[in-house]
């Protein structure tokens, strides 16, 4: 099966309510939100990452995220931002190899929100954890507090930002779960780009959504479950 067809097959199976209108425009009809309505607490956006489908030499999700959010590299890996990264794992016990993307886990009880002195780190009603750059003072305490290393600090002046994704020097940033796309009823860029169907996006609160059904039937886990942060990003095929 070619990459395109497998992706179509995935999308078709993803949800009965999902319709592909044109390449790149996918509507989640049931969950599209009118522009003048605030995000609702009835919804909790989340992701299920099937690590068995995620290949070590694929980083399509990372590339799509970088393009969507205008994340450029300055050739300085230590300070270049990474909202999503591919992590390769080898089990010390069995030698089993795994590869998976790690990004902001959009915790129900996010430590970054707790520690932020000004309230710039916050959680939207629909569970998406964001940084309000208007009041971020760049103290980086959230980066100290995040158990997933999910945040980056903008270490230099930026130009050519994407209009839908403002970012600038001196503030902390991280995965927004593509809130700007989700609000329009589109999939996050990484989920859309994932040809193998390893990233399933949906509403955790809707018992009929595919993600909720899969979470009920498949064994899944969160990263660092002992912290009891109840993350919105779950992993299948990974036993911690």
């Amino acid at each position: 099966m070619s990459a395109t067809t497998s992706r179509r097959a995935f999308l078709a199976s993803a949800s009965a309510a999902v319709a592909t209108l044109a390449p790149g425009i996918t509507l989640i009809a049931a969950q599209a939100k009118p522009a003048d309505q605030p995000a609702s607490s009835a919804v909790r956006w989340g992701m299920l990452i099937d690590t068995t489908r995620c290949s070590q030499d694929c980083s399509a999700c990372v590339g799509a995220c970088n393009v969507e959010n205008g994340l450029g590299s300055h050739g300085r890996p230590q300070t270049d931002p990474q909202w999503i990264r591919k992590v390769d794992l080898t089990s010390k016990r069995t030698g089993q190899k795994l590869s998976l993307p790690v990004m902001c886990q959009h915790c129900e009880k996010p430590p970054c929100v707790d520690v932020c002195p000004t309230g710039a780190s916050f959680k939207r009603q629909d569970g998406i954890v964001l940084v309000d750059r208007h009041i971020c003072i760049g103290c980086r305490y959230c980066m100290m507090a995040c158990p997933y290393k999910a945040r980056s600090f903008v270490h230099e002046s930026l130009e050519n930002q994407r209009p839908h994704q403002p970012r600038g020097k001196g503030c902390v940033e991280g995965c927004t779960l593509c809130a700007h796309r989700v609000d329009e009823g589109k999939l996050p860029a990484c989920a859309e780009a994932c040809a193998s169907g390893a990233i399933l996006f949906g509403d955790l609160n809707d018992p009929k959504s595919e993600i909720a059904q899969k979470l009920r039937t498949l064994p899944t886990t969160q990263i660092r479950p002992e912290l009891k942060l109840n993350t919105a990003v779950r992993y299948g095929g990974l036993s911690i």
């Binding site: 605030p38 208007h134 700007h180």
Partner: peptide, 13 residues
């Protein structure tokens, strides 16, 4: 508008 969009997700143009 900035607070509405950022905090609430209201995206009127």
């Amino acid at each position: 508008q900035r607070d509405d969009t950022m905090r609430l997700g209201i995206r009127t143009t």
